[in-house]
Design a protein around this nucleic acid. Structure first.
Lengths: 182, 182
DNA sequence: CCCATATTTTAGCGCACGTTAAAGAACGTG
DNA sequence: CACGTTCTTTAACGTGCGCTAAAATATGGG
């Protein structure tokens, strides 16, 4: 029993919703706006994705999928210094990607604090590993550098949303890289 | 002709509203919430402050008054390095002040982008002055450091709102201070 | 004591929100 | 071709929002 076929592209609508949440945040996006942009009526959206919370969860999962891939790739560099430099630079580029909303959905959205926390755990873990391997002086220094890197990442996302161009963000990463011992 | 006397403390209500906007942002605060916390009815609030936009403007002006004082005090240090170090440290302390909401109203609120822009102008101006006086190598370096400092400030505010304690923020300022030439 | 003024109280306006019930329409299956 | 299933359409529900008209109340001045 197949039933009446869907008249819209579910993935395309999810990408539209993701982009809207990325630009304006959870509270800044209404169901009616998503429906109008997608050209569908509200019940179709509810059948396809559930309520607004479920739609947001699916949209943010779609967003964070690419993000986690990048994070793990960057952090897997042989040295922590290189890992962090790659992370900062690729984040700066992501936050200022042409054709995409400036900034970061995860950094900008209050209800994604837990996901931010997990990202920070990964960064801190990578730096503690560097401390254990002797690349950093101590676990305390690893945690300090981690707090600094977390700060720069969140700050670049905020600056991007305020309209900073890519060059400004890369400036920030360049100076950030000088902040801890080589 | 004096008219019926006001039954509430206007300044106290404005402070309550400021705190509410600080904690939850413009969209997260409803007029009804402010009224309930203040123990007054909506028309009293409208007579005293105007509509929600006007209330927010007065509340954010009250907030930014103290902020601008601190900024000018910090930036007036004899050297740019000392000025920036003071700014970062006092900001970290402000963002994690006990008894106050974590983070920063100005940094967290989308509609205060212009005020953030003015703050960044002051920081850049101070660093360009340092370049002109020979403390920094060039105006380009001043702008790069300025972008970095803007980033760290915004990032610390974001981390504070995510629950980072004062020690973490001060960690960030400590490493940030190592980021540009002495 | 009454008036002008300024605030309070009461009640409610219009609107946008998230959500859903009900009925109609398009499919594969038997 | 009727049936079950799934989606679409239409219409509306309840709630909270920002805001305000209208009437009642409390002051100081004449």
């Amino acid at each position: 029993m197949t039933g009446r076929p869907r008249t819209f592209d579910k993935d395309a609508v999810l990408r539209m919703a993701m982009r809207a949440f990325w630009e304006r945040g959870y509270d800044g996006v209404s169901i009616a706006q998503v429906c109008e942009e997608a050209g569908i009526a509200a019940p179709s959206l509810y059948v396809a994705f559930g309520d607004k919370d479920a739609l947001f969860e699916k949209a943010s999962a779609l967003y964070a999928e690419h993000l986690d891939e990048d994070l793990e790739r960057d952090l897997s560099a042989p040295t922590a210094r290189e890992a962090i430099e790659r992370l900062l630079q690729s984040s700066a580029e992501h936050f200022s990607a042409p054709g995409q909303p400036p900034g970061c959905l995860v950094m900008g959205e209050p209800r994604l604090a837990e996901r931010r926390s997990r990202t920070r755990d990964l960064i801190r873990a990578r730096l503690r590993r560097a401390a254990a391997e002797g690349e950093l002086a101590s676990a305390a220094e690893a945690d300090g550098v981690a707090a600094f890197v977390d700060t720069v990442l969140a700050g670049m996302a905020a600056l991007a949303r305020d309209g900073a161009d890519r060059a400004r963000l890369l400036d920030a990463t360049r100076y950030a890289a000088r902040a801890w011992p080589a």
